[in-house]
Design a binder for these strands. Structure first.
Length: 898
RNA sequence: GGGCGCUUAGCUCAGCGGGAGAGCGUCCGCCUUACACGCGGAAGGCCAGAGGUUCGAAUCCUCUAGCGCCCACCA
């Protein structure tokens, strides 16, 4: 079947995806006759849009899963999306405030007010808010799925999950209850990170530190009973309203007499003690520090050690409360200004210094974090982390690249308890019920009829939801139906690969390992591949505001998805970032065009052939056949090895190189005479080999560029499978390896290139036949020229060829000097001797340098004594070759001058 | 403050102990019936710097410089 002149990705991509799906190729089923290969998708946020990072990660996963599927595994890729508790919550709040969600509100039956702006979640109430969340999910949730399909992802869509769906919620509840019963989950007062905008607690990971230009304020605290004062330094003067002590280092001579005395807190007049604590740094500031246990993590610890009072001066929105006395009901920075003004007025502000320090910001809304004391639910992590450290140490789970293990260990060995409650509405509600009478808490899988402590029916469910990463941590087994003991769990768990970005190694990877080990008693995945972060061509992060984003769907529109996929694979080296530009995609698109045309040519050449035998019997094969089969075998091996190591760049580039340069540039050109000819004895084997090459190339490339390979596959005259997607991935064929053919071919290529170089440099018109003289002593070189004359004629436009050991350079003939031959082409016009001289000089210089370097080694007794035998042999051979080349060049230069 | 990574051809990067590579870009010549999204050819590099290990270093070790990232409770 013939191919159209150009490939149209738009039409083909959709058609083939539908075809694959209708044939159930994506389905992974429990199948005891096959080995399973499972991947669980990192669930994109349900309201997300497919960005280039998704495109990369999901392309890589699809490459692996398609490869494994073709290679005989029962492959299953579990898809799904994440409810993204806080991210979605914040988006909805924003949408409400801007009144952008009115239509959704009407849809869920909420009486939308005319005027009110901003609209808040408190106006809606919890029930409507959650309804709105689901309506939102319905509207936007399918978008990301459609985009993954456009990418070509061969997910088993029957198994799609959502972290907030019923089955996953059951898993969440089960895990919470069990961890609570086992004592891992507790509720307590801790100093936590509070986002005053989102009005929720955040884990340390959700806080981003940023260097900020701030000020260090030196404030005098008068000593009790008269003269003198202690000067403390602080970046947050307003928190002095909550000070309950002043601390110095126990060994600080300056303050020895003051320890145990009291100061009077300015502005509020509270009497607070001076205490000694080793946490204080003598060198910083004045060596005396104000202690605000309610609003600073270190102070909290100091306060605890010394039994200091805890005075919280902030409300949930970080405005001051009644404890701030005259400064109550002020926004925190306003309070700071007022406090400073008043201190200054009272002469208690000694000085202010500029001071750079890191400030925590909310990951979602970028508001400055306020450390606060609050009652929250926590998971005790230490004990859960220990086995999770061991499985990495032992290699049971392998990180790729390996360096991420160190980062993992550092975090896991210093792990802190995980605050899991969030004061949000969109998410998994905590399965705990508080009793208004006895204040007891009942944790249960379902709403209990009464308090388990006192039996009172006066109970209400905890208001909080769980950190979104809590459900993500269960993902590898929750998508397989846990807590039910499903056949899928038994067969597909643990999965073989997790592919993700390194930015969520703590958020997600570490927690999945801990939860998997705890609840499944086994690792969740065998390998974790950390893909690089995609940056623009200048190494800058892509962002909409910078206008440097590369939108996958736009690229699909312009170049086709295969082009993007291949580019991403080809650039995916195991570094930390990948620089991507549209030009790269354009470049790989050209490869697809090349492939398309090579396929067109091949199919045309196979037309009408009655091929039945593809055994490629060596006896009937030409040099070029044996060579390309040998190269194919190596390429298969290299592709497989690279894929096993997740070296996608090597796999993609190896195939690119092989297809373009070996197959197209040399092989196809070399077999043209046979294909155009009518001699069945040479034509048929060429067609056989061509067919084998084409089918194997399609199969090898299919995981990278599924659409175009299928489009071509379907036009093959003798399909070995109804789809390339389910064809068997090529296996290494050792019997095809042919060192001799490769060596001979290499010499042939070198000679042809030498002729082409002379022709090109001397401006011999391309179509003009040229007489060629080759001086070569070695009989095998003479043999090559003799046997493969046709290739010199076809590929180098050679006319008559004279070869022999005593060939003389004809007059007016520029030359190429090789290690084992000299090539001359007589010119009709005048030869530019100067140019020729320069070129030969340059080559001589190189050859001499090479010779010297080699001889230096061979003259070194240590080298001869210590280097391995084969290296010495190699150096000797090199020396001979260089020497010969140098001699030939010298002779030629001499002749040139003479 | 701790840790990690990078520095190779004009650009983007491979190579990570034995003769400096690719793609893009540049230059030259070609519309040769698969492909001008192409074909053929060429130019271009003391592999950041300094020490060390080794018979041998772009490749391993140490230090320095520049760039980037992550973690962190010096107020």
């Amino acid at each position: 079947m013939e191919l159209p002149k150009a490939y149209d990705p738009k039409e083909a991509e959709e058609r083939w995806y539908a075809f694959w799906e209708s044939r159930h190729y994506f389905d992974g089923n429990v199948n005891e006759r096959k080995k399973p290969f499972a991947i669980v998708i990192p669930p994109p946020n349900v309201t997300g849009e497919l960005h280039i990072g998704h495109a990369l990660n999901n392309t890589l996963q699809d490459i692996v899963i398609r490869y494994k599927r073709m290679d005989g595994y029962e492959a299953c890729w579990f898809p799904g999306t994440d409810h993204a508790s806080i991210a979605v919550h914040v988006l909805i709040e924003r949408g409400l405030a801007k009144r952008e969600l009115d239509d959704l509100l009407r849809q869920i039956g909420y009486p939308v007010p005319q005027e009110k702006r901003p609209l808040t979640r408190y106006d809606l109430g919890r029930e409507y808010f959650i309804k709105l969340g689901w309506a939102w999910k319905e509207r936007y949730g399918s978008r990301i799925r459609e985009q993954l399909r456009a990418l070509g992802c061969s997910c088993d869509w029957r198994r799609e999950s959502f972290t907030l769906d019923e089955a996953r919620s059951r898993a969440v509840t089960e895990v919470f209850v069990r961890l609570y019963e086992e004592g891992f989950i507790y509720r307590g007062d801790r100093l936590i990170n509070w986002c005053p905008r989102c009005q929720t607690v955040l884990s340390d990971l959700e806080v981003e530190h940023e260097e900020t230009e701030g000020q260090l304020y030196y404030i005098r605290y008068p000593l009790e009973g008269g003269d003198g004062f202690v000067t403390v330094a602080t970046t947050r003067p307003e928190t002095m309203l909550g000070d309950t002590g002043v601390a110095v280092h126990p060994e600080d001579e300056r303050y020895q007499e003051l320890i145990g005395k009291f100061v009077i807190l300015p502005l509020l007049g509270r009497k607070i003690p001076i205490i000694a604590d080793k946490a204080v740094d003598k060198e910083f500031g004045t060596g005396a520090v104000k202690v605000t246990p309610a609003h600073d993590p270190i102070d909290f610890e100091i306060g605890r050690r010394h039994g200091l009072k805890i005075i919280n001066i902030f409300k949930a929105d970080a405005t001051t409360n009644e404890h701030a006395g005259p400064y109550r009901d002020l926004e925190r920075y306003q309070a700071r200004r007022r406090v400073i003004e008043d201190l200054k007025a009272q002469g208690l502000l000694e000085r202010v210094e500029p001071h750079r320090h890191a400030l925590g910001h909310c990951q979602r809304c970028h508001t400055v974090i306020e450390p606060l004391i609050s009652t929250q639910w926590f998971v005790r992590m230490k004990e859960l982390a220990e086995p999770a450290i061991k499985v990495i140490e032992s290699g049971e789970i392998q990180f790729i690249p390996e360096r991420w293990t160190k980062i993992y260990f550092d975090w896991m060995r210093n792990i802190r308890d995980w605050p899991i409650s969030r004061q949000l509405w969109w998410g998994h509600r905590i399965p705990a019920w508080h009793c208004a009478d006895c204040k007891g808490i009942t944790v249960a899988r379902q709403a209990p009829p009464s308090c388990s402590k006192c039996g009172s029916k006066n109970i209400a469910q905890d208001e909080d939801v769980l950190d979104t990463w809590f459900s993500s941590a269960l993902w590898p087994f929750s998508v397989m139906g846990w807590p039910n003991q499903t056949p899928e769990l038994k067969y597909f768990y643990p999965t073989q690969l997790l592919s993700t970005g390194h930015d969520i190694i703590f958020f997600w990877v570490a927690r999945m390992i801990m939860m998997g080990l705890h609840f499944m008693k086994s690792i969740p995945f065998e390998r974790v591949f950390f893909h690089p972060i995609v940056k623009d061509e200048r190494g800058q992060k892509m962002s909409k505001s910078k206008g440097n984003v590369i939108d996958p769907l736009e690229m699909k529109e312009k170049y086709g998805m295969d082009a993007l996929r291949l580019t991403l694979a080809a650039l995916c080296a195991q570094g930390k970032e990948m620089r991507l530009s549209v030009q790269d995609i354009e470049g790989y698109k050209k490869f697809l065009n090349k492939l398309w045309n090579a396929a067109r040519f091949s199919l045309m050449s196979l037309q009408g052939s009655q091929l039945t035998d593809f055994s490629c019997e060596k006896t009937s094969l030409g040099l070029e056949d044996r060579w390309i089969l040998s190269r194919l075998s190596r390429t298969i091996a290299q592709t497989r090895e690279s894929l096993e190591r997740y070296e996608f760049n090597h796999a993609a580039k190896g195939l690119y190189e092989f297809v373009w340069h070996d197959f197209c540039d040399w092989y196809l050109e070399m077999i043209k005479p046979r294909l155009y000819g009518t001699d069945v004895a040479t034509k048929t084997p060429a067609q056989q080999v061509l067919f084998v090459l084409l089918t194997d190339i399609l199969k090898l490339l299919h995981p990278f560029i599924p659409f175009i390979t299928e489009e071509i596959w379907q036009r093959l005259p003798h399909k070995t499978a109804e789809s390339v997607m389910i064809a068997e991935y090529p296996k290494v064929r050792p019997e095809w390896l042919d060192e001799h053919a490769e060596q001979t071919m290499h010499r042939l290529q070198t000679l042809i290139t030498a002729i082409r170089t002379i022709r090109s440099e001397m401006n011999v018109p391309p179509q003009k036949r040229a007489k060629v003289f080759i001086k070569a002593e070695a009989s095998d070189v003479q043999q090559i020229v003799h046997d493969y004359k046709i290739f010199f004629e076809e590929l180098a436009q050679a006319g008559e060829i004279s070869i022999g050991p005593s060939i003389e350079r004809p007059k007016n003939a520029p030359r190429m000097v090789l290690e084992w031959a000299e090539v001359f082409i007589p010119l009709e016009g005048l030869l530019d001797l100067h140019q020729e001289y320069k070129r030969l000089q340059q080559e001589l210089k190189k050859a001499r340098a090479g010779l010297e370097a080699t001889l230096r080694k061979l003259d070194n007794p240590d080298f001869l004594a210590r280097a391995p035998e084969e290296i010495i042999e190699k150096e000797k051979r090199k020396a001979r070759e260089f020497k010969e080349k140098v001699e030939r060049l010298e002779q030629n230069l001499q002749l040139l001058q003479g």
